[in-house]
């Protein structure tokens, strides 16, 4: 449909700063978001703890002031909910976030009955692998869907084409969130029990690298979460995105200079920089792992970015 394509081309591709996945202190988060508010070239910022319910009490009090700070700077704020809630406090936190009056991102279907009927967005932890699942969620009010990281790029195009009214988003930058568990790997590694974990995950603000016995860089742990060691760097051209029907990219926060990352992506999406320049500039940043982009090329996710 040429008409649809045109309207996509004319809309500026959105840039999202995803939720911080790691156990950062309240002070660190406050400083981080202050700089994001003032300098980052993202139009949407996600706040909230999505990985571990035990971390929530440390940051709960922080969100109201950050919402205000970011909104005052012209950013749209989305509240991201927990990906694996199960105890009553965590379930209540999910529901409270959904009712807070801001746009909510659901990362587990626990939140669906609360948000159904009003606009909401769907995070990459919800299994949307086909147009049927996307249509179902859109029918309940989903206006945007950040697709699962392992979804083949061919599927992305098919899903987006089936639902032009939904804003599809891809995870473009950062260590890939690969798995969640009931078990805390930081606690296990430190010989602790999850219930008495001493919050040791705060020692690794980008996750703790997991190498193979032959010294290959492989994965990273972040409490109950397992991420890739490699840093996803999906750097499409505006034409690529128009073809895919993707209207938003997500940058996942790391300790590296995220303002710089946002500027590089903005320039790429606006056609002011090409892929090679963007990748070279990303590579020059202080990153926790090699650049990978296999999932966006129909390869294993660990496949390295080809710079040429």
């Amino acid at each position: 449909m040429p008409g649809t394509e045109k309207s996509i081309e004319m809309t500026k591709t959105g840039l999202t700063l995803g939720p911080v996945l790691f156990n950062w202190s309240a002070d660190r988060l406050r400083d981080f978001y202050a700089r994001i508010a003032d300098e980052a070239e993202v139009d949407r910022v996600h706040l909230g703890e999505v990985v571990c319910g035990k971390r929530q009490p440390f940051t709960d009090g922080l969100w109201p002031e950050l919402i205000e700070r970011l909104q005052a700077a012209g950013k749209q704020v989305v509240l991201s909910t927990l990906a694996l809630p199960y105890n009553p406090r965590e379930r209540k936190a999910v529901i409270d976030f959904c009712r807070a009056g801001e746009l909510a991102e659901i990362n587990d279907l626990t939140a669906l009955p609360t948000v159904a009927g009003k606009p909401f967005v769907v995070g990459p932890f919800v299994n949307v692998y086909n147009e049927g699942a996307a249509r179902f969620l859109a029918g309940r009010g989903a206006t945007g869907i950040c697709l699962p990281v392992e979804l083949p790029i061919a599927s992305v195009a098919i899903i987006a084409a089936a639902l032009p009214e939904v804003e599809f988003e891809l995870f473009a930058f950062g260590r890939l969130p690969l798995a969640l568990s009931g078990r805390c790997y930081h606690a296990r590694l430190h010989g602790l029990h999850k219930d008495g974990c001493q919050f040791v995950c705060d020692r690794d603000p980008d996750g703790l690298p997991v190498d193979t016995l032959d010294g290959q860089r492989f994965l990273a742990i972040n409490g109950i979460q397992t991420l890739s060691n490699g840093v996803e760097a999906f750097c499409p051209t505006p034409d690529d995105l128009a073809r895919l029907g993707v209207r938003r990219l997500r940058l996942s926060p790391h300790t590296t200079d995220m303002v710089a990352v946002s500027r590089l992506y903005r320039a790429l999406l606006d056609g002011r920089a090409d892929r090679a320049e963007t990748l070279a500039a990303l590579k020059a940043l202080d990153l926790p792992g090699e650049l990978v982009d296999g999932f966006t090329r129909g390869q294993p996710g660990s496949a390295r970015v080809e710079m040429a």
Binding site: L178, S228, Q299, P300
Partner: peptide, 21 residues
């Protein structure tokens, strides 16, 4: 499975094939 089933992409990260895919 130590991971929450249906929420794990470790296998596709290494091989391109996973339970969900």
């Amino acid at each position: 499975c130590p991971m929450t089933e249906g929420r794990c992409s470790l296998s596709s990260y290494a091989t391109g094939k996973s339970p969900n895919l």
